[in-house]
Amino acid sequence: MSTVVLLLITGVGLGAIYFLVASGLSLIYGLMGVLNFAHGVFLTFGAFLGWEVAARMGATTWAGFAASLLVGALAGAVFAALTERFLVQRLYERHIEQVLITVGLALAVVALFDGIWGTDARFISGPPWMSRTTTIAGANVPNDRFVAIVLAVVVLVAIVLFLQRTRYGMIIRAGVENRSMVTALGIDVRTAFTLIFTIGGAAAGLGGVLASHAFGYVSPMLGQTLLIFAFIVTVIGGLGSLTGAAIASVLVAVLQQFANYYWGYGDFAVVVLLAVVVLTRPSGLMGKKVTA
């Protein structure tokens, strides 16, 4: 029983990190038709800058941790906004070239991170409470998972409120459905493109800091590894669907945890799930619609 609870909660915690990466990916794809290979780089950049800040302010203090979250989100947001504005937007409406640009950027920037921070993983530490465990139903759950879950829920609620309550949110929801009709109403969707990259980048940067705590290290490949699972999550959840991304994140991560524990092949279970979804529901669990 305690094992099941542990796997379940750590799975949801991992799902929270997947969601932070996948939410941006899914919205970017839904609105712009771009598969953003550079999304992992936003995450890694956030994780490294967050780590640098925490190290300077005292990695084991709460202030240092809070600052690393803030800086991580900010770093991801700024990097993403610049990427959209100066690279992706130059190739407006040319989706494949946009994908290629993000592939090239990811390659170059990961190499640059290698050069700056070295290829070896940096082991990190946070406030002591984070690495302790809390006992729930007999299971000793690492506290950092709770932080990840809470923050992912906060991000989810924030994005939903943004999409539902603001004019730009409305433009993004409409644009995911039918971008050309939005422009035919006199709206310049390019602003919405930059905005969605910025939001996605911020979530990824935040996810980077949380992932580095959950895994205990940060390395230049951190984002690339998570990116592949985030891709799988977005396909399973339905490209462009925020709710789908949230459900699929948890589904994939929990499945992965259980399969890893009982069978040893968590990654395969995820790929099999992907194959099953693609065969039975090619448009994913929630299809192409932002229902929030």
């Binding site: 004019r167 409305m170 433009i171 929801r173 409409a174 459905e177 039918n178 009709m181 939005v182 109403l185 709206i187 619609k289 932002v290 229902t291």
Partner: peptide
């Protein structure tokens, strides 16, 4: 925009 309400469709316009 089928996912938006009638009012939202008008406000968007």
């Amino acid at each position: 925009f089928s996912g938006l309400t009638v009012t939202e469709n008008l406000r968007l316009a």
